[in-house]
Simulated assay, not measured.
Amino acid sequence: MAFTHALVGAALAAPVVAFAPELAVPAVLAGMVGGLVPDVDLFVGRHRRTLHFPILGWALALPAVALALFAPGVATVAAAVGTVSFAVHAGMDALGAGDEVRPWERTSREAVYDHLRGKWVEPRFWIRYDGAPEDAVATAILAAPVVVFYPDPFPAIATACVVLGVGYAVVRRRLPPVVEEFVG
């Protein structure tokens, strides 16, 4: 669920919020954006393949983190948090269901594509599907520290993510017929 990915990106910025608050806003924004960017492949290319890199994403993230540690600044810290969030996204997708309209039916064995090995990673179903009740709970848990400790405007954004995520979870299983009619 996009809201969960965004809040994981915000959570990855927690050390910056705690130890370099002057860099918090760009770090949290970069984390949230980095957590959402892989899903652009819903519209361009093949979802969970074109912009999802469960292994290779770390080849970008780890040097960015090293650079931020040795030369901390707005750009380097934001790049580090954003690229780590980007890399974590694909791993999170592998922990859920496959990329299918009705993921609770478990008809797909393709959670996310591993470009390094040239094969699909199978879904783990730790969270049964995007928008499952446990996904909404994860979103709420991730939002809690953002609401309590993060600077404005992030508490409001986190609250909105929870409200929208719970709403999505309520209607998720009713969406396939709507999607099928819309897409054809």
Rank of each mutant, 00 (worst) to 15 (best):
V74R: 11
V33R: 04
D130R: 00
L142R: 13
V137N: 03
K119R: 06
A14V: 12
P21D: 15
P153V: 04
H89E: 09
L29C: 15
H5N: 06
A30W: 11
G45S: 07
R128L: 11
I55Y: 14
G184N: 05
A6N: 05
A11L: 05
R109Y: 10
P103Q: 05
R48V: 05
A66M: 11
S85P: 01
V121Q: 15
S85T: 02
A87C: 02
R109L: 12
L7V: 00
A27W: 01
L7S: 00
A66C: 13
H115I: 12
R174L: 15
G9L: 04
V77K: 13
V33N: 03
A78Y: 08
M92Q: 12
A156T: 11
M92Y: 11
A160D: 03
E100Y: 03
R174G: 10
P177M: 14
F86C: 09
V171K: 01
P133L: 04
R173T: 01
G34M: 08
A59V: 15
H52M: 04
Y150I: 01
G167A: 06
T107P: 09
D152Y: 06
P155K: 08
L12A: 05
G131V: 00
A160E: 06
L7Q: 01
F149Q: 08
L164K: 02
D39E: 04
A132C: 12
E110A: 13
V179A: 11
P176R: 13
G31L: 01
P155W: 14
A68C: 01
V147R: 04
A20Q: 12
F154D: 00
F182K: 03
R172H: 08
R102Y: 08
P21H: 06
G34N: 05
A136F: 07
F53V: 00
V74F: 14
G98V: 12
A87I: 13
A2C: 11
G184W: 09
P103L: 00
Y113E: 14
P72Q: 11
L175T: 10
G57V: 05
V81Q: 08
W120C: 01
R124E: 14
V166R: 10
M92S: 05
A24R: 03
P26T: 10
A13N: 04
W126D: 00
L7M: 00
L142H: 07
A68R: 11
F125N: 05
A79H: 05
R46I: 08
R117S: 14
A11E: 03
I55T: 13
V148G: 03
R173M: 02
R46E: 07
Y150C: 05
G31F: 03
P155V: 06
E181D: 15
R117Y: 14
F19G: 15
L116E: 10
E122R: 15
V33Y: 07
P133I: 05
G45C: 06
L142V: 05
G31V: 03
V17H: 02
R124F: 14
D99F: 12
M92R: 11
T107Q: 15
Y113Q: 09
I157K: 07
G82R: 10
Y113F: 07
G9R: 07
A68F: 12
Y129G: 06
A94D: 13
R46M: 06
R124L: 15
L175P: 00
M1V: 06
A97R: 09
A61W: 14
V16T: 13
A10T: 00
Y129M: 08
V121M: 15
